[in-house]
Design a binder for these strands. Structure first.
Lengths: 159, 159
DNA sequence: TATTGTTATACTCTATAACTATA
DNA sequence: TATAGTTATAGAGTATAACAATA
């Protein structure tokens, strides 16, 4: 049952490593992966209503309420009345959270460089093309699956 | 702030697609990603004590108790007295769960083929070498980080 | 005394449904 | 009537700590 290590195995391993690293990075702080997704989104999209956050992050409005509660309590975001719609709030990053996101953006770029640096220069172009092709194919499979089956299954002859 | 799409972005995108696909695959059934990890481990390692499962999956014994409770209730595993240690249980896959794991293994291999099939044949060797190199480097970074810093940070000059 | 697993407790992420205030 | 966000409720994953039975 010990099959050879495939592309998929490697990609899953990489996924798992990202997960673990992120989770560990936040251990002990009041940040978590889910909360950081909110901060990251705000950094890229600017101040937003909770409804907009829920839509972009594809989670329920109730979930956003909880995440924003926690982020607000820990001083990462503020809720201000929405000018022009008294039902809504505008959620904004605090200055220190904005700075944290810039740091994270730099770390992100740096990690990307380091990882690409591990690849032999003569392999880099093919690698980039290949990863693009895989991401695109996987995206198509998942989209198709969202109309019924799983990626693995819709990928094959429907046995 | 809209940076070009990098290797890291692509890999994170792929991670996210795997996550979503897996989660959706189990929606509505009594399986979940965490529970399936237990089944997958049992399929590869054979009948195990809960302690062994907790160690291999790197979660707390308490967590395993809950996962095995759920899997047992849904008929995926059995708990039998451990011959030779009356404190412990041996957790085993039921025949139908073993068959399910074989199916999953086949789907896995098939998906791997499909993804590699999306890559131009002339790029495949370089892609495989590159992904290996990235996985290895990331593994090293995460191991180092587990002794203090985060991967992104330990990757760079310690600013 | 050390180990295996459970009970007790708690926090986070997540969802749906009912409700309030406003549009 | 529709929308933004909250309260209520619930399930799942996870952890630590205290405890039972057994080694």
């Amino acid at each position: 049952m010990t099959a050879p290590v495939t592309v998929l195995d490697r990609l899953l391993e990489i996924s798992d490593l990202f997960q673990r690293d992120l989770a560990r990075e936040f251990a002990g702080s009041s940040l978590t992966v889910a909360r950081t997704r909110v901060l990251w989104d705000l950094a890229h999209e600017g101040p937003s209503t909770q409804h907009a956050l829920a839509t972009r992050l594809e989670v329920s409005p109730r979930n956003i309420t909880g995440l924003v509660d926690a982020l607000e309590a820990a001083g990462y975001v503020t809720r201000e009345p929405h000018p022009g719609d008294r039902r809504a709030f505008l959620v904004s990053l605090t200055p220190s959270a904005a700075e944290l996101m810039r740091e994270m953006q730099r770390d992100h770029a740096e990690l990307s460089d380091v990882l690409l640096g591990a690849v032999a220069p003569s392999d880099r172009e093919a690698l980039l093309r290949g990863i693009d092709a895989i991401a695109e194919r996987l995206h198509d499979l998942v989209s198709a699956a969202e109309a019924g089956r799983t990626a693995a299954r819709s990928a094959g002859a429907d046995r």
